[in-house]
Design a protein around this nucleic acid. Structure first.
Lengths: 107, 107
DNA sequence: AAACTATTTGGCTAAATTGCCAAATAGCCA
DNA sequence: TGGCTATTTGGCAATTTAGCCAAATAGTTT
C-alpha cells in the first residue's frame, strides 16, 4: 500500500517541504494579497536578495508560484489559490499545543 | 511585518516540516483510519523499525499525533482531525503540475 | 557602449535530516 | 529470574538545506 503509492507520497512531500520554511511561509502569505517582485521581500525579511531569490525558486519548483518578468523586475504570484485555507489546520495544531502547554502549567 | 511575526512563521514551518516526508505522510493517512502501533508501519513502509519510531517521534514533537502505551506496544493516533482536508490543496498543486506537464508535451 | 538596477547562479561552509545498526529500555510470560 | 517482544535512543555516515558573498545575466537609461 505504501510502495504502490510511493511516488504520490513523494510528490506531496515535495510540496510540503517547499512550504516548510518561515521565510517562504511569509512570502506565500504576502502573495495572497497580490503579486510582488523579489525586491519587495528582501527588506521585510532581512535576508540577502540572493537568498530570497532562492526561496522563490524553491516555491516555483514546487509549482506553488509563477513568475513574470516585466522590465528588469520579476513578479511572482501564487499559482494555486487555496493556500490560505490550507493553513487553518496548521493553526489548529498550534492551538492544541498552546492548550496543552497551558494545561501543564496548571492554568 | 515579518520580524514581528517571525515566531509564528517558525511555528507553522515546524508543523509543515514534520509532514514533509513521504513515510510520514503515509503514516498520517493511515492514522486517519484509526490508531496503529509502530510495528504496523514497519512492514508496509519497508524501513527499519527504529526509523519508523523516529518518524513517529517527529510527528509527536510537532503536535500531530499522541501516543498511548498499552502492554508492550505503543499506539499512535492523530491529535488533530483536519489533516485530510489539509491535503486537498496539495493535491490541487500536483494537478496543476500535471496539467502543465501535459501541455508542454502538447497533449 | 557604459553605467545602473534587478535578479539569478555558483561556490562555499555550517547546520539539519535521513536511515541504518547496535544498544538500552519496558512490559509480558514461562 | 531469564527469555521474549515492542519500542526508543545513541551514534554514525551520507545527503540535503540554508544563507552569505561574488560573479554572471538581463533589461534600462544616458
Amino acid at each position: 500500500m505504501y510502495q504502490q503509492r510511493k511516488n504520490h507520497f513523494e510528490a506531496r512531500a515535495k510540496v510540503l517541504k517547499a512550504l516548510a520554511h518561515p521565510s517562504r511561509l511569509y512570502i506565500v502569505e504576502e502573495l495572497e494579497k497580490g503579486e510582488r517582485c523579489v525586491c519587495d521581500f528582501a527588506d521585510e525579511i532581512g535576508a540577502d536578495i540572493s537568498t530570497i531569490s532562492k526561496h522563490l525558486s524553491v516555491l516555483k519548483q514546487a509549482g506553488l508560484v509563477i513568475d513574470d518578468k516585466r522590465g528588469n523586475q520579476v513578479f511572482y504570484q501564487l499559482r494555486v489559490p487555496c493556500i490560505l485555507n490550507f493553513f487553518g489546520c496548521v493553526e489548529s495544531v498550534l492551538e492544541e499545543q498552546a492548550k496543552e502547554h497551558n494545561a501543564l502549567l496548571g492554568r
